[in-house]
Design a protein around this nucleic acid. Structure first.
Lengths: 223, 223
DNA sequence: CTATAATTGGAATGATGGTTCTAATATTGA
DNA sequence: TCAATATTAGAACCATCATTCCAATTATAG
């Protein structure tokens, strides 16, 4: 019951962050069930008991890993969207920010896809509500944007919920492709442009796209 | 080394199919790791040893479940596409057939998403090559269709590979939403239409998409 | 320096569940 | 009906972890 030294406390936080990082990489590589606490302890260079003293159980550790990252993702996406006024701009921000985040967190991407994108299999049905609520809050913002776009006549009249899922799925699908193809970075910007264009204007060739025609050029003159 | 009676043999096949069905439902509900062979044996009303005599191991059983269904999916999708002449028609067939199949196989859908859509986590990296090859063959057909569409000037010049992933992901994402929302059937046709429209024409409102598309042709003939 | 509290390491525990084995049981051909 | 064979049942075996525990170590305060 004594005061914990500031330094001591700082180290503690340091350790926690370090363990979370290691756990993330192992969970991402092995999945929840194959990953063992020993493995994590070993790679983190702590003893088993230490891990358990920081996080109560394997599941808690796992949940913490996911929760931390999902929060970061959602926060940055919603922040970017909030800072942009136009409907179309918000949509572009959504695509851009989300994909950039996933691109910078390829390790995490596996967990994300397995747990957030394809929930309710294996363990995920017991992911803390917090995580799902957080993620859903982001989707709600997106739905709202689309809905307002429809009201304003910028978007066609479609079911905003369905469109939200489609856009969310579209971004996930492309991010997923980064995992499988072993290429390095190059695809990020290209993929963002492709998706944005595809989502806004579709695959068919048109005469005069009323709103924006600027990014079409970009798509064509490279690759 | 004796002749297996025809009836006997028929029963055997019957048993195998029955076990596969049961296994599918359990794997889908629990995931590979949580599902136990005892559980499957019990629900299938066979003894453990019997299951092992039919399929060698848990993993083999699991792989058989997935392989069987993926084959059916891919076969029906490619067949439908082959029977349709026009590029746009083939695309619509892809969306329609794939989504209808997944809609009719909601149980399987979980496994499908976890193993085929988000591979390499957990067990999937050891899914038999056969399965991935089969699935990829379907995607190749799709890529080829898109590529030809671009050549003909029906589609904008985009990276056909990326568009393939996008379309595949789009359909997966919508199918996924059926799992989460507990609604019954109604969304299938609506979702198919929404996706098709979205993919072909995008979300933005356009003026008058007239037929003429020759002016873009020259851009395409690289790649 | 010493007593007290916090941290750490890793062996010991216990449960779970895949796989194997053997003893029934049923089927077949004669 | 009877031996030979195939099938089934489920108990027993065994390896693999998550988790707990306690002894050893280290830090803190006076």
């Amino acid at each position: 019951m004594i005061k914990p030294t500031p330094r001591r406390e700082r180290e503690r936080q340091q350790h926690i962050r370090h363990i979370l990082d290691v756990a993330e990489s192992i969970f991402a590589k092995e999945g929840f069930f194959r990953a063992t606490m020993r493995q994590i302890a070993q790679k983190a260079e702590f003893a088993l008991g230490t891990i358990y003293s920081y996080f109560g159980s394997k599941r808690q550790l796992y949940e913490k890993v996911i929760e931390t990252k999902v929060n970061k993702l959602v926060d940055s996406v919603t922040k970017e969207m909030a800072e942009t006024p136009s409907v179309q701009g918000k949509l572009e921000k959504f695509i851009h920010t989300k994909m950039t985040f996933l691109h910078k967190n390829l390790f995490f991407l596996r967990l994300y896809l397995a747990e957030v994108d394809v929930p309710r299999l294996d363990i995920s049905h017991s992911l803390p509500k917090k995580v799902h609520e957080k993620y859903d809050s982001m989707l709600c913002v997106l739905t709202d944007v689309i809905w307002r776009g429809i009201q304003k006549g910028v978007f066609k009249p479609m079911d905003a919920r369905v469109v939200t899922k489609a856009l969310d799925g579209l971004t996930n699908a492309l991010a997923l492709s980064w995992l499988n193809s072993a290429e390095a970075h190059p695809s990020l910007e290209t993929d963002i442009n492709t998706i944005t264009e595809l989502f806004l204007n579709g695959a068919l060739v048109h005469q005069e796209p009323t709103q924006n025609s600027n990014d079409r050029k970009e798509i064509c003159n490279e690759s």
